[in-house]
């Protein structure tokens, strides 16, 4: 809880007062969870988060402070940038998990590069069929291969997200070994996400070439 410097009310977000609506300059950069007035944790209600984003934007957006002088306008600009950044982190489960692991003192992706053991064998197989599809993404064989690869990856993604949730819900203690487990799952998930992204791009190219 932060105290509003203007009306002294307790306010749920450190960026603007929930009572009088005044913009507040935070003393230190707030965490994404603090910005939205939430307890840190992997589980977030997406629809509620979006409603809150719009509610807070309606209070702090620089569009509404354009005539209020440079200082106020810049504060609105900074606070809204902070709000939007916090939303980017909280709206995406993997970003949220990544933030939690760091915040709880867990390893980052540079210190813990390992992947879950079972995953490695599959990666080799996937890479091979992806390599083939890259050569001629519009051919019928490649299209089918991409489709089944996408399906396999989506299933793998579900499995990994379940592991990630098991590692981070309930929220672990600082320094818990579950954080390293979560990091490994995140490393694998990053690979899966990137590959799925590339498959989507290849499929887009193919559908354009087709029509």
């Amino acid at each position: 809880m932060t105290t509003c410097p203007k009306c002294r009310a307790e306010t749920a977000t450190p960026l603007c007062c929930s009572a009088c609506g005044a913009l507040v300059a935070p003393e230190r950069a707030p965490t994404p969870f603090e910005v939205f007035g939430l307890e840190p944790g992997l589980t977030v209600d997406g629809a509620a988060l979006k409603r809150r984003l719009i509610e807070l934007s309606r209070r702090m957006h620089p569009d509404f402070f354009a005539t209020g002088g440079d200082e106020l306008r810049e504060l609105a600009e900074r606070n809204t940038a902070e709000l939007n950044r916090a939303y980017e982190v909280l709206a995406n489960e993997l970003e949220r998990a990544d933030w939690l692991v760091r915040a709880l003192g867990g390893p980052d992706e540079r210190t813990e590069r390992a992947l879950p053991q079972a995953f490695l064998m599959e990666v080799l197989e996937w890479n091979e069929s992806l390599e083939e599809a890259r050569r001629s993404p519009a051919s019928p064989t490649a299209r089918r291969a991409l489709e089944s690869l996408a399906a396999a990856l989506a299933k793998e993604r579900e499995r990994q997200v379940a592991h990630l949730r098991a590692a981070l819900v309930p929220t672990p203690e600082r320094g818990s070994p579950r954080l390293a487990e979560a990091r490994k799952e995140l490393n694998a998930l990053r690979y899966v996400e990137r590959t799925l992204g590339e498959i989507r791009a290849l499929q887009l190219e193919a559908s354009t070439a087709q029509s």
């Binding site: 620089p62 600009e77 900074r78 940038a81 902070e82 939007n84 950044r85 939303y87 980017e88």
Partner: peptide
């Protein structure tokens, strides 16, 4: 900062 991030934004 990734494309299609809402502006203003910072990272």
């Amino acid at each position: 900062i990734l494309r299609n991030s809402t502006i203003p934004c910072q990272a």
